[in-house]
């Protein structure tokens, strides 16, 4: 018994061109508390709002430092274990290196008209972006609602975060 293989007809072979739908909502998970990892999430969320795209931010693990009153003005660049610093790790570990590198970065950001993190959070809040803190990380680092800046809407679980991210493109930073 022979099996006959039939070639699919040409029109069946052509994949339909997917329709390009504009992004309407982005959800950014901010999981790091260094200056260089805080800015990308904040800037992307802000760019989304400026384009009329809804933005939701979820601060978890070290990302909580970005919305904690005590640390928001003191985020640092990591000088150790950061190959992009282009300085030897031994030097990066010297006392004061992190402060110097952080100050240099802050000055460069200001030159580009990028505001300090506290002002970025205020701009995001005024733009209508929604900021949430992760309940589990809050418990782990023993922080309370009062430790957070007032722009934070709520402390929520990971499942709540996904409920609030309906239809969103999720970015993990």
């Amino acid at each position: 018994m022979s099996t006959q293989i039939t070639e699919p007809r040409a029109e069946e072979n052509v994949a339909p061109t997917p329709a390009r739908t504009p992004i309407e909502h982005v959800s950014v998970i901010v999981s790091k508390g260094t200056l260089d990892m805080a800015y990308p999430g904040l800037i992307l969320a802000n760019a989304a709002r400026m384009s009329g795209i809804d933005a939701t931010l979820f601060f978890t693990f070290w990302g909580l430092d970005v919305i904690t009153k005590k640390s928001i003005d003191h985020l640092h660049v990591a000088t150790v274990g950061n190959p992009s610093m282009h300085i030897p790790t031994m030097l990066g570990g010297l006392p004061g290196m992190e402060s110097v590198a952080s100050e240099v970065m802050k000055k460069q950001m200001e030159k580009l008209d990028i505001p300090p993190v506290r002002e970025m959070i205020e701009i995001l809040y005024d733009s209508g972006a929604k900021l949430y803190a992760c309940q589990m990380a809050m418990d782990m680092f023993k922080r309370t609602r009062e430790d957070l800046v007032p722009q934070v809407e709520d402390v929520i679980s990971a499942m709540d975060f996904f409920d609030k991210s309906e239809g969103a493109q999720v970015l993990f930073i």
Binding site: A47, I123, D126, G128
Partner: peptide
């Protein structure tokens, strides 16, 4: 950019979003 507009025009960020709800950065 939007921050420049809000800093120098006298119209704050929040109001810019009310005036141009579908994205003041572009609009």
């Amino acid at each position: 950019g939007l921050r420049r507009i809000s800093k120098l025009s006298g119209v704050p960020t929040k109001e810019l979003y009310q005036l141009f709800p579908k994205g003041p950065g572009k609009l």
